[in-house]
Amino acid sequence: MKPAEFAYHRPDSVEEALGLLGELEEAKVLGGGQSLLPILNMRLAAPAHLIDITGIRALRRFEEDDSGVRYGAVTTHMMIEDGLVPDPARGLLPHAAAGIGYRAVRNRGTIAGSLAHSDSSAEWPTVLSALDAAVHVRSNRGDRRIPVRELLLGFFTTALAEDELITAVEVPRLREGTRWGMVKMARKPGEFAESLAITLVRPGETEIWLGAARDVPVRLAETETVLAGSIGPIALEQLAEAIGADTGSSGYERQRHAVAVRRALETARGETVRGAEVHV
């Protein structure tokens, strides 16, 4: 349970980090390391070089304007949970952050690191897909902006090229009149989700995202259509069928997703009090 050998680099600036990323073979970027270190300890990964970006002060800044908030890549979950940085989503970001791992993990884990890791049962991929956030990416070849929905390609797979670094995560302001619901089902506190439902409800429109159902967060388009066409509450069985069509899941998993989505709809509509995560 110790990492294999690697060379360690701790650049002071983004430019220096990009230089290293462009020139080194088999290099991995290290943020807070809360997903990467377990993988290194278990030797599921053995990169030749680690480029630790937590010493780059420019990546700790945030900027806020009318359109939303842009977080530096190494903003920790704790900073979002404790409101040390602004929240453009009226409580959704601190609520999601508080459910990630444990306090000791949230003190080091970073928002960009979680996206680069791309595990759909973690909080940020699904929450930031639902909010239509985007990452700002830099390399020696130039800069680009990638919507989170296009960044996440599969389990541990993203659209990032080997020489690219996420420098910031831009989260747009939640539209006026939108209410959110979030339900995370997990085996125990701090665990990865088994179902992670996000609902955004505004007059005439309901948007639903589900994490932990497939390799990437899924927008439940079929389920949204079924809901839009129904008058009054929808039967759980009908909801489960629609979610099955959206995700390909069946049996107990489909039922669990349906319960998570229904509860997230209820909390978004204010029918039940927003609670902590559910343990199944």
Binding site: Y8, L30, G33, Q34, L37, P38, N41, L50, D52, M78, R103, A104, V105, N107, R108
Partner: peptide, 9 residues
């Protein structure tokens, strides 16, 4: 701040 010493280089 409390951290995991096993997950910190």
């Amino acid at each position: 701040l409390p951290v995991r010493a096993c997950l910190t280089l």
